[in-house]
Design a protein around this nucleic acid. Structure first.
Lengths: 342, 342
DNA sequence: CTGTTAGCGCCTTCAT
DNA sequence: ATGAAGGCGCTAACAG
């Protein structure tokens, strides 16, 4: 591939001049500029982002770590982030942690070595000492959807506490008293929130919380499926179930189908994370809709602000900018036909 | 961040030695090795992938371009590729082209500047002169799912022609004669295949093809939704519909719901791209299952082979390795309850 | 076995 | 307005 030197030679100027026309970093006489541009064109020259990064220590690449891009929730997040960042010349290095701390650690390692300009992370929930490394080197970290065990950056999340509260409250108002909830490991900040909301709603209705109605399942659809079967078999007297993510909803519906249980006749249902297909099952599912676009918006804005801060503090040192705030977005209960009055 | 020089200084050796212990590129006496390792540890040193790339001209990053990661098909592809590449120390730079040639061009530009080691592309279908640039610079290109307008790399795809043939044939054998098909722009290679299969099946059953039963829709769910409405209103006499991707299936089902049309009673249905939720609608949808894992497998293998070739040819020049073959994977029709005999 | 040296391709003072 | 030179962090010969 041609280098800046080839261009300089062909245009009969120095590499400095070429650099200046490329970056508009300096005024260049129109005719020399034209010559340079012509040379660039002729050689099909493209500045090496690598070399540029080395000198400027700016990579214009952002690390994005999510648990599983196959989950529509995260797919939408990646897309939303890409949409908002690609237009500014950033590239995304996307990593699937698959909910494994070890993979998360390896990915962090790789991205650190790659000197990304910033990171957007949906953390697994395990503590990651490597994160300290990022903050030590002033690489902006923004957490999306989930809070890391040790705070080390702004958290942009959805108020799942309120979301679950709304779901539970909705069922309670319909007269339900024995409401099961299907969640992932309570290690995750989002799960803590969900359970909080669930418990609070019960308490507000002067009901005690039956811990045996809280079903914890692993992340995969198959695991959710199994757990759902257990749930349905163990607690025949319950009247409603809240599934707190896409996989749980899928697994639960499969299990119900297999056990010939109908909703809302046998059991009422509320799903988390709305999705087009939820309206296509019979009857359509009541769901808590998560504001994904707003989430991406806030996340990218926060990240850009953080990177801005970081750039500033590099120039004029000791201008401590205040840390960026966490943001909590509200979810919305969409009432459809999967809950009945009892 | 500490550099290799800091490590060398602290360990009392030269940078070359440090480099050698990092890369195992040379035998180093055990005790010096230990000192170096200790220094690395103490400084929390991490080699800069940027600098390394500049000297070795290897980035260990792969560009991945898909239309829309929000489509479960592509989400699964990205995940499948990541799974198979991350373990080898590669990172994915993921780009959403959103089916727009302009965005695709911009992404190609960025990835070229980033000097990726290879590319996996699901092309939009528009000609992209920039692709020539990649082949000119010997950057391996592998196309996944779709064929680019001008051949410039191996194509790993699913035999959609056979898949649609099977779907159409299935309906024909059930006695259907007026079968509509919902597709995207026939510009795409995958759509050409689909229509071929459809037409061929009809011909094989000695039926003429009614072009008015071929409904072309834009990519988004909303577009599919509208087109589906048109389809349902314009052709009241048809007895079956084939929806050729996830968005089409969604849009069609929504439209049928809105028009109070039941399947399989009013119309029989076959969907492309199986998905867990297809078994949860009532009745479960007959679908063509796409072998996504095999697709990712073949794609990554081909890419790695191509990169291997490229590396070899760099060493011993003029050892022309034969071009890698295209691969066509077979889809499978999963018969469920959405088609009835007539 | 270890150190010296010369780039990789680019940007950036600092002169001119 | 343009050029010369140094350096970003690392690896790859080659010497010792």
């Amino acid at each position: 591939m041609p280098t800046i030197r080839d261009v300089a030679k062909l245009a009969g100027v120095s590499t400095a001049t070429v650099s200046h026309v490329i970056n508009n970093s300096h005024v260049v006489r129109p005719d020399t500029r034209q010559r340079v541009l012509a040379a660039i064109e002729r050689l099909n020259y493209r500045p090496s982002a690598i070399a540029r990064s080395l000198t400027t220590s700016v990579t214009r690449s952002i690390g994005v770590m999510v648990a599983d891009i196959t989950n529509p929730f995260f797919a939408a997040i990646v897309r939303g982030i890409e949409d908002r960042l690609e237009t500014h010349g950033y590239n995304l290095i996307v990593c699937n942690t698959d909910e494994q701390a070890s993979r998360e650690a390896r990915d962090l390692e790789l991205l650190l070595a790659r000197r990304v300009d910033g990171m957007i992370i949906a953390p697994t929930g395990e503590p990651q000492p490597l994160l300290r490394e990022f903050v030590a080197h002033n690489i902006p970290l923004v957490f999306i959807d989930r809070k890391p065990p040790e705070p080390c950056g702004p958290v942009i999340a959805i108020d799942t506490r309120a979301g679950t509260y709304a779901a539970t409250d909705h069922l309670l108002r319909l007269g339900h008293r024995r409401i099961a909830i299907l969640v992932r490991s309570p290690m995750l900040s989002t799960v803590v929130g969900r359970l909080d909301g669930y418990r609070q709603a019960l308490r507000d209705h002067h009901l005690s919380v039956d811990e045996s109605l809280i079903y914890v399942s692993d992340y995969a659809v198959e695991a959710a499926h199994e757990t759902a079967h257990r749930l349905l078999s163990n607690s025949p007297w319950l009247t409603a179930i809240i599934a707190t993510n896409h996989a749980m909803t899928l697994g639960l519906l499969e299990a119900m189908q297999e056990q010939y249980l109908k909703y809302p006749d046998d059991i009422s249902l509320v799903a988390f994370d709305d999705n087009p297909w939820l309206t296509l099952v019979t009857p359509p599912l009541t769901a808590v809709r998560l504001p994904i676009q707003a989430l991406c918006d806030a996340t990218v804005k926060t990240l850009r602000a953080a990177m801005e801060n970081q750039a500033q503090s590099k120039k004029s040192s000791h201008v401590e900018s205040q840390p960026l705030p966490d943001i909590l977005l509200q979810a919305e209960l969409i009432s459809r036909a999967s809950c009945r009055k009892i």
